[in-house]
């Protein structure tokens, strides 16, 4: 007997595909913001399905802080090659060299906030009118307030107090010159949904998500990976641990968790028993209560 209902994941998949096609139909020059993290990988996978048998009809854009996990870059280049799409790189290093932004100082300095300028510059330079992101509402309390189609003014800013109503599945992507949109096709997915989907679809992900041995240092309640960018405190010690990452950001701020989960099945199991949110290990969100909202207002992902 045929089934005449969609499973929860199929329904989310169908919704995301609908949103991606709507982007293609409503905008002139959209891109997928590709970080190399699982959410942007899932969005890219969904875009492949949305336009099959055509190839993805827009470019992937990577805002490169220069503080990458080498695995992320290798993964990105391989994927771009397979998809046959264009890659646009916005480089934070270039923004620093051009004097557009100044590097933060001190031990906890990161390039996280600097990305905003690089991102907005790249959007302007390439005349991008829609940047598709992998943001999910369950990630963070300010993200919980996002629309699918989220308007940005000509300074790239988000005005959370004055968002357009968004009814049913009618998405208003109209903008004036200089403005743009951020669109979030997987708004309604949770971390668990993303993992279940990756497992179901057998989507390839960077090995960093799977448990592996790595040199790390204990900082801010999580294991920060050793890298050329790390400045050690005299009291801090490098140790080797079996860890994995729940989210991927800059190598300087992404903390890993101790884990034995070295297969997708084990990750799904582990995530379902988690008592901490995935962003709990990211020092960029810990800076203040409204860290995410403030960055988003300025134009962050």
């Amino acid at each position: 007997m045929s089934k005449y209902y969609l499973s929860y994941l199929e329904e989310l998949e169908s919704e995301a595909i609908f949103v991606l096609r709507e982007v293609w139909a409503q905008f002139q020059n959209p891109v997928i913001l590709f970080s190399g993290g699982k959410d942007s990988i899932v969005v890219t996978h969904l875009a492949k399905k949305a336009f099959y048998p055509s190839k993805i009809p827009f470019a992937l854009m990577h805002v490169d802080t220069g503080h990458n996990f080498p695995e992320t870059i290798a993964f990105r280049d391989k994927l771009i090659n397979e998809l046959g799409v264009q890659l646009i790189v916005g480089s934070v290093q270039d923004s620093i060299d051009q004097g557009r932004v100044a590097e933060e100082k001190g031990k906890s300095a990161t390039r996280n906030a600097l990305q905003i300028t690089t991102l907005l510059d790249a959007i302007e330079e390439h005349k991008i009118d829609c940047a598709i992101g992998g943001g999910r509402r369950d990630e963070e309390k300010a993200r919980a307030k996002e629309r699918f189609f989220s308007h940005r003014d000509d300074f790239g800013q988000w005005d959370p107090k004055n968002q357009r109503p968004e009814l049913w599945n009618l998405f208003n992507g109209k903008y004036f010159e200089g403005e743009h949109f951020r669109v979030f096709p997987i708004s309604n997915w949770t971390e668990m949904d993303v993992w279940n989907y990756i497992l179901q679809e057998q989507i390839e992900i960077p090995s960093l998500y799977l448990a592996h041995e790595r040199e790390v240092v204990w900082r801010n309640h999580s294991w920060i990976p050793n890298s050329e960018f790390l400045t050690l405190d005299p009291r801090e010690k490098i140790v080797t641990k079996k860890i994995r990452f729940r989210t991927l950001g800059d190598i300087t701020i992404t903390g890993g968790i101790e884990s034995e989960a070295d297969t997708l099945e084990k990750i799904v199991q582990e995530v379902s028993a988690m008592r901490q949110t995935e962003r709990g290990n990211r020092s960029d969100d810990k800076r203040s209560e409204n860290a995410m909202e403030d960055r988003k207002k300025m134009g962050y992902f």
Binding site: Y8, R137, D138, K141, A144, E289
Partner: peptide, 30 residues
């Protein structure tokens, strides 16, 4: 838990929709 914006917290009111997700053994909820 749902009033996530600075202005909402300061004023003690909800300004825009917050979406939350949860699952019980019986159902999934948005």
């Amino acid at each position: 838990f749902t009033d996530g914006l600075r202005d909402e917290r300061e004023q003690g009111i909800t300004i825009d929709v917050a979406y939350r997700y949860f699952t019980t053994p019986k159902r999934k909820f948005i």
